[in-house]
Design a binder for these strands. Structure first.
Lengths: 226, 226
DNA sequence: GACATTAGTCGCATTATGTGACTAATATGC
DNA sequence: GCATATTAGTCACATAATGCGACTAATGTC
């Protein structure tokens, strides 16, 4: 992906927020950009310039594969950002957030690097907003799509699953409550395998296997923060 | 707003889904377009072509005012749509959904008209998607922003409030449950006025007046539809 | 005054949630 | 072996949230 000369108007960019679990928190993939003038290095969210006629989600997928080396296990559009300045001087940026499993989080190129959310380098203001909203988008949809399961191997322990949820949500959960909710949703089925992880009691392995059922509508919620 | 000649590439459009309460359901504002060739009439969601450097939300607000004649009481970005065909042949469309109170739903120009969601004319596929997601976006955020209150006059009865919620959600609510949740959220305060609406017991008038308080985080939800 | 109509409340059963405490099975140190 | 640490898995109970029927209250109509 070559830089666009400043001043040239682009159609728009498709920016990617690739996230992966790492060290009990989320890490985001950034791309190195060396400024040709002052030789300073800055980090940016990877982006792709739009091509006419291509499906938006496909453009995003291409950008994700290019930067992470693998297809994401889940991705969704976050929105359009056009206000704060973009590092590529794009007028408008469409943002996709993508989740990449732990194993695939190894990038070949030296131009890409994973950063823990707690250790971010300075970003352009527009990209700060993108990152912020992307993490929020993941958390908001966590209960609607089985993303946490897809980030784990085919079989996993319930503790691993809980840790994945805690990592994605950014907060701790209570063990008994977590398992109760999980059982009520009938989302996993036990295998007959057990894993002994050094010390402590061995854990039973489960696999993702959602049964039928759907939630009844709720009355109303008034969760206004105001 | 002039039509763009076909074939000319536009930067992108900002499309507007303006909604208003009407006859116990939602109505959406459409704009009349007469095809210069075959003289057929078709209806489209209003849109504005982007201008360089303008804040996205401002472009949307302009488009809303132009078509409805008033500023919306609430609006938010829904997302970017680029796949299915757009009536203006735009490559990309950014969509904003806006809510307009009942009173302001009177459009001057003959080129605009409110359509009940149950009586829609055929729309371009991309705009169908926009409308679909816009209604969903409103419902999803109904518990986070006091939109229903802003659609009502400054004082209102609790029955009116409940009807507004039912209209926005598209489903019935149980009276006692609704009021209980409302009381728990401390969102309204009673006035000393009452309204007698013909037959039936007079209803007390309330005004919107949220107290402090915020929700504690929930454990996890597994609401997967799968 | 009987009845229809709308407002407003209560009570109760059921379900959901938060949380501490308990038991189970393994490894380690002595 | 045996006490202890460590992780897995479960229970029990209190509290909160929800669904819902049934009741009372106040008004207009006939």
């Amino acid at each position: 992906m070559s830089r666009e000369p400043r001043g040239k108007r682009q159609q728009y960019t498709v920016d990617v927020v690739a996230l992966t679990p790492r060290d009990d928190q989320l890490a985001v993939l950034l791309e190195r950009r060396s400024d040709s003038k002052d030789k300073s290095v800055r980090w940016v969210l990877p982006w792709t310039v739009s091509r006419t006629g291509e499906i938006l989600a496909d453009i995003a997928e291409r950008a994700i594969i290019r930067s992470t080396g693998a297809a994401p296990i889940w991705s969704t559009q976050v929105g359009a950002f056009g206000d704060a300045p973009h590092p590529g001087d794009a007028e408008l940026s469409i943002v996709y957030v993508a989740l990449v499993p732990m194993g695939h989080a190894t990038v070949q190129s030296d131009d890409f690097q994973w950063f823990l959310l707690s250790e971010l380098p300075p970003l352009a203001e527009r990209q700060n907003q993108m990152l912020q909203e992307s993490v929020g988008a993941v958390r908001d949809r966590l209960d609607l799509y089985p993303v946490a399961f897809k980030l784990l191997p085919a079989t996993f322990t319930l503790s691993e699953l809980q840790h994945m949820y805690e990592l994605l949500l950014g907060r701790r959960l209570h063990k008994a409550s977590f398992r109760r909710a999980l059982a009520a949703a009938a989302l996993v089925e036990p295998t007959d395998e057990w894993r002994s992880e050094g010390r402590g009691r061995p854990a039973q392995l489960y696999r993702f296997g959602p049964k039928k059922r759907r939630r009844g509508r709720r009355g109303v919620r008034f969760d206004l923060l105001a």
